[in-house]
Design a protein around this nucleic acid. Structure first.
Lengths: 185, 185
DNA sequence: ATGTATGCAAAAGTTTTGCACGTTA
DNA sequence: TAACGTGCAAAACTTTTGCATACAT
């Protein structure tokens, strides 16, 4: 599934003068065996390893995830919990994006190849080398709405400010989308 | 351009029992007069206000940007600088996304309606109310490459891990994209 | 053998919070 | 005037860093 094996990781590290250490191999292994849809914070990874009896210092964890993110092996996710989360950077076609509820922080994955394509196209056009692309949809989930949220939003809230111009209703925009949207993933 | 005026802000706040204060009005005003493409951290906003002689405490700034983000008035951006940035949540069709160089942190805006459409569609399908959607492309810019970066990536780096499966080259994927990509923004 | 990586503890930086005082509706 | 918001200072957290030791190549 993933392109990264201990052997290839070693090769890539050595090519730049870096080293494969047991800690790095262990951390890679954890991410590769993480069930789909899971992602870990540095702290969570630290605790998980401690539980398994593998004590790797927090410093090393931070240094390692940063290194691996720069290598494109893992993705740094900025969700809504106040700290970063990490997960394997699954190659196409397993790449995915996230919906985050801004009240309860619940996170949902979804796949959408159109977004990946558009990103790659944009990167080409701009002349940069893409390492990762992440679409994050900030939203309010049905449970949150039921529970009385949004406490701070007008009760007639329809997301219209976020997406609509002053003269278009949400419904109009959605109609517009139905008409000419090219892909139904 | 923006749907939010002091009057409408007051109405929305009052509807929930909150209040319009001079601080909140000032902060809204700053964001509304920020040139396109600019975004501010809490600290930067604090300094900017101080320079203008308007002293608003950092606490209030943090409290206000969080409030306004939840109202959908401003967007919280998670770029690469280690802290959040804020900007007006421009309504469609002025909505935009970001490319960030993971070495030099340079940030570039781009517009892409397809992404907005796909996001809205996904939100509908999932049954949530979308407040904002942000695509962030993590990339390495040409200058960074010229300067010897990526120090930690193999010299043959082609972004292939990030997007390609084991059997597809970047070129193949790009060809594929050229064929059936529906929109050329 | 040399240069890297790790672990620990301390530091740095951002964001949040408690509380007394002001202000808004 | 009652509830909400602000400012200040302290606290809470996440992430980074300096340095001595250990390890991979």
């Amino acid at each position: 599934m993933s392109l990264c094996t201990p052997t290839s990781l070693k090769a890539e590290l050595n090519a730049k003068g870096w080293r494969l250490t047991p800690q790095r191999e262990t951390i890679l292994h954890v991410f590769q065996n993480l069930p789909r849809g899971n992602h870990l914070s540095a702290e969570e990874l630290h605790d998980l390893l401690k539980q398994r009896g593998e004590k790797i210092s927090l410093s090393t964890i931070y240094r390692t995830v940063k290194l691996m993110a720069r290598m494109g092996i893992i993705r740094e996710l900025e969700l809504a919990e106040g700290h970063k989360h990490y997960e394997l950077n699954h190659p196409y076609p397993h790449h995915h994006h996230h919906i985050v509820c801004i009240q309860c922080n619940q996170t949902l994955e979804f796949k959408n190849d159109t977004i990946l394509k558009q990103s790659l196209k944009q990167a080409c056009k701009t002349g940069v080398q893409m390492i990762d692309c992440q679409l994050t949809i900030h939203a309010i989930c049905p449970e949150a709405i039921r529970k009385g949220w949004p406490a701070m939003l007008p009760s007639s809230w329809t997301c219209s400010r976020a997406i609509a111009s002053g003269h278009q209703s949400l419904e109009e925009i959605q109609e517009h989308l139905e008409q000419d949207d090219p892909e139904s993933e």
